[in-house]
Design a protein around this nucleic acid. Structure first.
Lengths: 132, 132
DNA sequence: CAGAATGTTTGATGCCCATCAAACTGACGT
DNA sequence: ACGTCAGTTTGATGGGCATCAAACATTCTG
């Protein structure tokens, strides 16, 4: 079992983590990892709608930002969130991001069902602006 | 007193917010706003080390992402964090980011003092890796 | 050993972004 | 009106990033 190169906990940078999580595909990967714990890359990347080389690029970005830990076992690679390290360095951050992402995903799924039920309906209350 | 165009609370997107805060300059602006409350752009952008047009670009990015609210009063523009809106949409997120940024900034300042005291010293414990 | 499975690496492409400089706009003071 | 102040807009530039396709490396299996 080999470990790929990762940044040390104290070298994880806030802006890098935020940038890593600001991509929809990578956020989705992180969300899946938070639900399923350890996953291999194929499982994590299934149905992401991107080419496998693109997914591989995202795995690397997440790893180099310090968001995930990757270890190789045989011909498979397993990723997991660096929960403890991130909690040490940026308390509450990962949970806040993942909770928000989970809610957002649930809402998106709801919107899609509504759109399927009433394809010509209004766009789900987006016109009710109240920016102040 | 005029209000500039902003996204509605329910239209603020997580990935946009994360991307907006993943730039060091914008994170610094957000941090200043969190300490000082409402600020005009000149005050907020002082000593950021970027050209005023670059700063203006960052103000717009923060506004369009839904992070700040901008209102114009005479020839000045005042920005403030959309704390309540962000808390509604992404509970705990902004506080986690700002706390982490504040700590990180304090650490950076400490590192700089240490570097000034011992310019040829070791690079402040970076060699103590413990990635597992 | 041959072949399949699991990712990674290497171009190539197109887009977006951070930055600066210079011109511009809108409001205020004299 | 004239000049100034505060900030925006408009190129221009350079760099990075997301994506795909194709070739590659490594490991397991028949």
């Amino acid at each position: 079992m080999r470990l790929l190169p990762h940044p040390a906990t104290e070298d994880i940078e806030l802006t890098e983590v935020l940038r890593a999580l600001s991509d929809p595909v990578r956020l989705q990967i992180a969300l899946r990892l938070s639900v399923a714990g350890e996953m291999n890359c194929t499982t994590a990347g299934d149905d992401l709608g991107v080419h496998k080389s693109t997914a591989s690029h995202h795995y690397r970005t997440l790893r180099e930002a310090g968001v995930v830990l990757t270890k190789q076992e045989g011909r498979l690679k397993y990723m997991s969130l660096r929960r403890a390290d991130l909690e040490t360095r940026f308390p509450g951050l990962l949970d806040a991001v993942l909770s928000a992402a989970a809610l957002h995903e649930a809402q998106a799924a709801r919107d899609q069902r509504v759109a399927a039920d009433a394809p010509a309906g209004r766009p789900s209350g987006v016109e009710a602006h109240a920016p102040v």
